[in-house]
Design a protein around this nucleic acid. Structure first.
Lengths: 206, 206
DNA sequence: TGAATATTTAATAGACCTATTAAATATGGA
DNA sequence: TCCATATTTAATAGGTCTATTAAATATTCA
């Protein structure tokens, strides 16, 4: 071992593997490469995690649960619905900004290897059903009071997620095709953060 | 050769490879598998296309150019801006519906193998710059006449593409995580087609 | 028909990958 | 210190993949 001699090898493997899986997906990442990046023997990756699949699952489930639990964190309940909505949309954006490659990994693994769906479903089951129920109830009150047009929680969430997630999934397009500099990209997504909130709020008007 | 004995082998390879690349991406598709699906010897894939990379590039560039040229097709010029916008958003949706896996392939290849960016850039350069210029001019007129709020062509396009494309990229999530049946999915995206138009129109109000 | 060319096949080189094994080395506690 | 256990290494089995080659077969056309 070269690097990371100080810290836990198992942890080092997890960290390096997470970065590589997020960068290039499951198929394009090899255990040989992970070991090399950690600075350890390739057999060690299997010693600690047995298979590449298990290593991936461990990392993905941990990452997904962390993401979801961070998002779930209740915000101040005693504020108007629209303010809370703005808060949530921005919190979703911020969380994506901290985990910009997670959505792609989810899409990638679910698309190229549907057998992994079960493990991913397991990881995502951490999203309580109650979230949708609760949102639907809140929406119902707003709709009945004529403050917003009729809309389902699912549709609202779809709009939010689409507008926010695409900022990060499409980054390689902005970089390669549109020749965005890092500054261009940074400016763009920050501007869109507010634009997205505006569009979502606007789309709810009765 | 078993199947496709009637038709051109080269063409058969292209068709089968296109399906497989779209289904599973470049990395997860093997030339052996392509040959097997075509019903020919694996060496034939290399005989006609030399390398897997060349085969992929041929297919991708053709697909991308087709998609773009179909979208570019001018619609009736003599209708109000908002009507044209609605037409375009729906045309974009319809085109995606016919090529539901193309966006993912684009993201996948650009993300997992950035070296391929050049060839993809080449394929996408088929999008004339004038499109954005023209849209910006049309927007300017609408803005100056107070019919819509100030917005850039790029932002408008981002909103349209995000809302439409996510319907298809996220399909594996709807299927696996939300247990959508084919009918559920079909109903959902058709509803969203109109919902997306509404959101986009609404988001432009002054 | 028969020679030139095109297509197809079987075989395989060469690379790399995952996973395992046995042996070597390090570590911690009695 | 010394033994038991944990960690690490080198070596390798066994598989698959891309790409090439030479030989076999089919097709074309003079």
């Amino acid at each position: 071992m070269d690097i990371n001699k100080d810290q836990n090898t198992e942890q080092a493997i997890l960290e390096v593997a997470e970065k590589l899986f997020l960068d290039k997906g499951f198929a394009m990442t090899t255990t040989t490469e992970i070991a090399k990046a950690v600075g350890c023997n390739q057999a060690l990756v299997h010693y600690y995690f047995r298979t590449k699949e298990k290593l991936f699952t461990t990392i993905f489930e941990h990452k997904a649960k962390l993401f979801i639990s961070q998002f779930i964190k209740v915000s101040d309940e005693n504020i108007p619905f629209m303010d809370k909505l703005k808060q949530k949309v921005e919190a979703h954006f911020d969380l994506l900004k901290e985990n910009p490659k997670l959505p792609f990994l989810l899409f990638n693994e679910l698309t190229t290897n549907p057998e992994r769906a079960k493990s991913i479903k397991e990881a995502l089951s951490y999203i309580p059903k109650t979230i949708f129920t609760k949102l639907n109830e809140e929406l119902k009150v707003e709709i009945e009071n004529g403050r917003i047009r009729p809309i389902s929680a699912f549709d609202l969430v779809y709009t939010i997620v689409s507008l926010n997630v695409m900022l990060f999934i499409a980054k390689p397009i902005f970089d390669a095709v549109l020749d965005f500099s890092p500054q261009d990209y940074s400016d763009f997504i920050e501007r869109r953060k507010h634009e997205n909130v505006k569009i979502i709020i606007e789309s709810l008007k009765p």
